[in-house]
């Protein structure tokens, strides 16, 4: 459908696993996940404990010990990520792939002005003068629809609202012009009306720059309206992969259950359908 699907995929994941070995036993958070991402918006949906966030972290090799990530293949534009040294991986994370987390409060340095953080991020990636960096930072804030970029540059993170902070985060992550952006619940901490504005920005950027986007969320309704393709995860596995537009035709009972358990405005007042978990899904 999209031109990207004919080329080699941006990201190719085969049999990704994340294990945690603790004194109280071994648990597997991700149990053999395989998928490809092109220059498209792909959604990973699941409830808590489904392993969706861990999948996102594992792609960037950000799983913290005692977690161990393994994969038969984890290739980004043909480069085998599992084989890279930590130093080259760091360069890869900064330049080619980026991640936006749920709460901007924890991702921005609380004692540094936004402007300085942005400019430093720019200078790490490009050799430009401070003046040029300043101008670029302003442009970027304008790109994420911030109306008064000068004020925001001079502000500390705690002086920004949640929506504003998340826009700054997105701007920062897009500085190196990555090819792939992983957004882990980027709007869950935001009010619904702000949420849509942030998504609109993300959407435009993906379209304009031809990035690939992995959008991780618990909100099936949001993902299905925002993404091109949806991966539904349950207990560390992908139980269904489906075009977002054809979600109504989902076959897996878990996907169907997730869709049907949501209350809907104007629907008759009957008890909500309750998801019946089947041991066979795991």
């Amino acid at each position: 459908m999209s031109p990207a699907s004919s080329e080699a995929p941006l990201l190719d994941v085969k049999n990704l696993r994340v294990r945690f070995e603790t004194t109280r036993g071994v648990t597997e958070a991700v149990r053999g996940v395989s998928f490809t991402v092109g220059r498209e918006r792909i959604g990973i949906v699941g409830e808590s404990g489904s392993g969706k966030s861990m999948t996102g972290r594992a792609i960037l090799r950000l799983v913290r010990p005692p977690g161990i990530a393994t994969a038969d293949r984890l290739a980004f534009q043909g480069t085998d990520l599992m084989a890279l040294s930590e130093r080259r991986m760091r360069a890869m994370r900064g330049r080619r792939m980026s991640m936006v987390m749920q709460d901007p409060k924890y991702s921005l340095n609380p004692v540094m002005r936004i402007g300085r953080q942005l400019i430093e991020a720019l200078k790490v990636h490009e050799r430009i003068s401070s003046k040029e960096a300043q101008r670029r930072a302003l442009d970027m804030l304008a790109d994420v629809q911030i109306r008064d970029p000068e004020r925001v540059l001079a502000a500390y993170p705690h002086e920004l609202s949640g929506g504003m902070g998340q826009r700054v985060m997105i701007a920062m992550m897009l500085i190196p012009r990555p090819d792939l952006l992983i957004a882990d619940e980027p709007t869950s901490a935001l009010d619904v009306t702000v949420q849509l504005e942030v998504l609109r920005i993300l959407d435009d950027l993906v379209k304009d720059r031809g990035m690939g986007l992995i959008f991780i969320s618990h909100d099936l309704r949001l993902v299905s309206t925002f993404c091109d393709r949806v991966l539904v995860m349950y207990l560390g596995r992908i139980v269904e992969e489906i075009e977002a537009s054809r979600l109504d035709e989902a076959k897996h009972p878990y996907t169907r259950g997730l869709l049907e358990c949501l209350p809907e405005i104007g629907a008759p007042r009957t008890p909500l359908k309750v998801l019946k978990r089947d041991a066979a899904w795991a």
Binding site: V192, T193, Q195, L196, L199, D203, R221, L222, S224, T225, F226, I265, G266
Partner: peptide, 23 residues
């Protein structure tokens, strides 16, 4: 609410937002 008979823009915005993202 079911008939979308709301008078304020804000309520309308909330209603729209509850339906997910609109391209």
């Amino acid at each position: 609410l079911a008939d979308r008979k709301v008078s304020s823009d804000y309520t309308r915005a909330l209603l729209t937002a509850s339906e997910g993202y609109v391209r």
